[in-house]
Computed example of a mutant assay.
Amino acid sequence: MYPEIALASASPRRRELLQQIAVPFSLVQVDVDESHQGNESPQLYVTRLAHAKAQAGAEKIQFALPVLGADTIVVVDQHILGKPADQADFSRMMQLLSGRCHQVMTAVALVGKGSSDSCCVSTEVCFRELSAADITAYWQTGEPRDKAGGYGIQGQGGRFVSHISGSYSAVVGLPLCETDFLLRNWQEQA
């Protein structure tokens, strides 16, 4: 059904999501500078990173397969929350998110020989009020350390989410509907 692709991501969640929709893929390791550039909007930033990862993967495998790259960020008050540097940074993030709604943006890019396509999906996620004890206990699970915004909706962090508006799979790390569209479109043009 889908073309075989390479996935330029170390995320186990993205691998699981691709397996969920039966996409045949292999992994390609890439190293991309993820620094935010100047006045770049959150949407431009996350889309640039997804494309850079896919492009780096395509070059690494010499365009043998189309390469899928993705990136996810958490945005509150137009500020990008990356992975927490330490417990203090994590606590600051959780205090910003507590009792409020924020945006989770996931961009997906598909790059092959002579062509590329991408999209960005934004989902609104709302948190319940968090106590200091909630925040400390969650940090101690170890889960927040490698997560954008300091939480994983698919794990223990999901207990803080009162509701979402948009794509759940995009919050996990890969919007399935849009990824399906990119792959089908790619196949039709091949």
Rank of each mutant, 00 (worst) to 15 (best):
G112W: 12
G57Y: 03
A56S: 14
C119E: 05
G69W: 02
G57E: 02
D146A: 03
S9E: 05
N185I: 01
T106M: 04
A50I: 04
G158A: 05
P84E: 00
W186K: 08
E4Y: 02
S91H: 11
S26M: 05
S11I: 09
N39M: 04
A8S: 10
V172I: 15
A85P: 02
V75I: 13
D89Y: 00
Y2Q: 03
R184Q: 15
Q43L: 15
G158H: 08
D180G: 00
Q19S: 15
G142Y: 00
S162I: 14
L65S: 05
Q189M: 06
T141A: 04
Q55E: 15
N39V: 03
G112L: 00
C120P: 01
D31I: 00
H51Y: 15
H102V: 10
T179H: 01
I153E: 09
L97W: 02
F63S: 10
P12A: 06
S169N: 04
M1S: 13
D86A: 01
A170V: 03
K113R: 15
P66A: 07
K147I: 07
P175V: 05
E40Q: 15
Q156D: 11
V30I: 02
M93Y: 13
V172D: 05
D77C: 01
G158V: 12
G157H: 09
T136L: 06
L49D: 10
T106Q: 10
R13V: 09
F181Y: 13
G114L: 05
L18D: 10
G112P: 01
L174S: 07
I135G: 07
D134Q: 08
V111E: 06
I73K: 10
G149M: 07
I135N: 08
G152I: 07
T179A: 03
A133L: 07
H51F: 15
D89G: 04
E40C: 08
R145I: 14
K113Y: 13
L18I: 12
